[in-house]
């Protein structure tokens, strides 16, 4: 597969796997309104992923459909970061995972508006609006956790400490990123990292939350090396197409 399509997949897989985690949480929200809001985010992300997979299929032009790419692909061919695979431990973990990803996606799409690739430019413009709203919500939750009860503060700080080491992978430049940056298609991850850090600092300061003092990093998903979680996610997601390969649904 050519590098550009792999670059597309990195973006789509992040959206897909995170939406899967969010959709697991449907009907389990802390109150009804939050449940609906959570599902809206999941739907936005599926929408983003779906249009990218469709485009990959179109450009590949080898008979594989967008759904084939989702439902008939091996685990090691998924290129999402490990963070989005992390299970829904509690609402604090769900929101911290969301917040970190929202800030990343906001900056990524913001940069990709200048991509030389017409498709990426278009999807970046469209998705940016959705992601801005996601980030507004998740930032406000950081504040409610950090400036609310002691229990909430403790839970959210625990989630931040746990997930911090997974955030570095967002900015890890692999060979695909390098090639795409050179071609003027991809975005500059060092700029995204700087902006990401500034936004996280701003929200954490306002919310009285802190970043753990460690450089330890866990990564691999962008190159197909995942946590154990992804296997289970795909087993579930791909269950029907795997079990009934000839069926059309």
């Amino acid at each position: 597969m050519e590098a550009k399509l792999k670059y597309y997949l990195q973006i789509a897989d992040n959206a897909l796997i995170l939406s899967h985690r969010l959709s697991e949480n449907c009907s389990k929200g802390p109150f009804l309104e939050e449940d609906l809001a959570n599902t809206n985010v999941a739907l936005d992300l599926i929408g983003i992923a779906e249009s990218i997979y469709g485009e990959v299929a179109k450009q590949e032009n080898n008979g594989r459909s967008g759904d084939d790419i989702v439902y008939r692909r091996k685990e090691s061919e998924f290129l999402n970061v490990i963070l989005v695979e992390m299970p829904n431990e509690d609402f604090a973990h769900i929101m911290v995972r969301q917040f970190f990803t929202d800030v990343f996606q906001l900056n990524l799409f913001s940069e990709l508006r200048n991509s030389k690739d017409e498709f990426l430019m278009g999807i970046a413009h469209k998705s940016l609006k959705e992601v801005m709203y996601h980030l507004k919500r998740s930032s406000e939750w950081m504040y409610r956790f950090g400036q609310g009860t002691d229990e909430a503060k403790e839970r959210v700080q625990k989630a931040i400490n746990k997930y911090w080491k997974y955030t570095h992978e967002f900015f890890l430049e692999n060979t695909i990123d390098t090639e795409m940056l050179k071609a003027g298609i991809g975005s500059d991850l060092s700029i995204i990292k700087k902006n990401w850090q500034a936004k996280v600092d701003e929200i954490f300061e306002m919310s009285n939350l802190s970043i753990p003092d460690t450089d330890f990093s866990i990564e691999g998903g962008k190159n197909g090396l995942h946590s154990e979680n992804l296997g289970y996610i795909l087993t579930e997601m791909q269950f029907l197409p795997s079990k009934y390969p000839d069926a059309i649904w």
Binding site: F31, L32, E33, E34, L36, A37, N40, K136, R137, E140, R144
Partner: peptide, 20 residues
């Protein structure tokens, strides 16, 4: 109507519930 705990949440919940 919606339930919410603050002004920002109220307008967002209204958006997520009534303008889908």
């Amino acid at each position: 109507a919606v339930h919410a705990y603050d002004r920002e949440m109220a307008i967002e919940n209204a958006r997520d519930t009534y303008t889908r």
